[in-house]
């Protein structure tokens, strides 16, 4: 049972590991160069999933403050009436921060998610370069099957 608990409590890790291994398998054992690249994308996506999952908490929401949270006077009239200040008053930044009641546990951690934006870009770029290379290989060797390419190199010698 402990094992099952360990598995289920951290199921996100197990899933990313499985996906990653699928990708790694494709990268290593596939003969077709494009399939290898697909494997590479799966591999990278697994890592992205891992990062995304570590930022998530139970019952959380996206880390964006709604307008009424920041400017309660506009959204929540009775709260504004309590303050007793003039209507024209715009609270300073410090005041707003002091008045906010934000529980970090209510929000997903944005940082890993932002990082993954960069990682996705990197992944796409890698895939692009990989496909471009594959194209050039196809033009040079007339094939994208690794064993055929290696044979044509051998026979050219």
């Amino acid at each position: 049972m402990e094992l099952l608990e360990a598995l289920s409590a951290k199921f996100n890790y197990w899933i990313y590991v499985i996906i990653m291994m699928i990708g790694l398998y494709a990268m290593i054992s596939k003969n077709n160069l494009v399939k290898k690249l697909i494997g590479m994308s799966i591999f990278q996506t697994a890592i992205i999933l891992f990062y995304v999952s570590i930022g998530v908490k139970e019952g959380d929401t996206i880390p964006i403050l709604y307008h009424d949270q920041v400017h309660p006077s506009h959204g929540d009239s009775h709260h504004g009436a309590d303050t007793g200040h003039g209507e024209d008053h715009h609270p300073s930044h410090e005041e707003i921060v002091a008045n906010l009641h934000i529980e970090p546990d209510d929000f997903a951690n944005p940082l890993p998610h932002v990082l993954m934006l960069t990682a996705i870009v990197v992944g796409v770029a890698t895939l692009g370069v990989g496909l471009a290379l594959t194209q050039k290989i196809y033009r040079d060797f007339g094939s994208i099957e690794e064993n055929e390419i290696l044979e044509s190199i051998k026979s050219a010698k």
Binding site: L33, M40, I47, L133, T134, I149
Partner: peptide, 26 residues
């Protein structure tokens, strides 16, 4: 000609390496 193939292999290996690093940082 052969450089392209070498670059491709480098890309595959290099990506694995960098990804491991990224995981570690995670």
């Amino acid at each position: 000609k052969r450089a392209t193939l070498a670059a491709y292999k480098y890309l595959i290996m290099g990506t694995i390496g960098a990804s491991f690093y990224l995981l570690g940082v995670g």
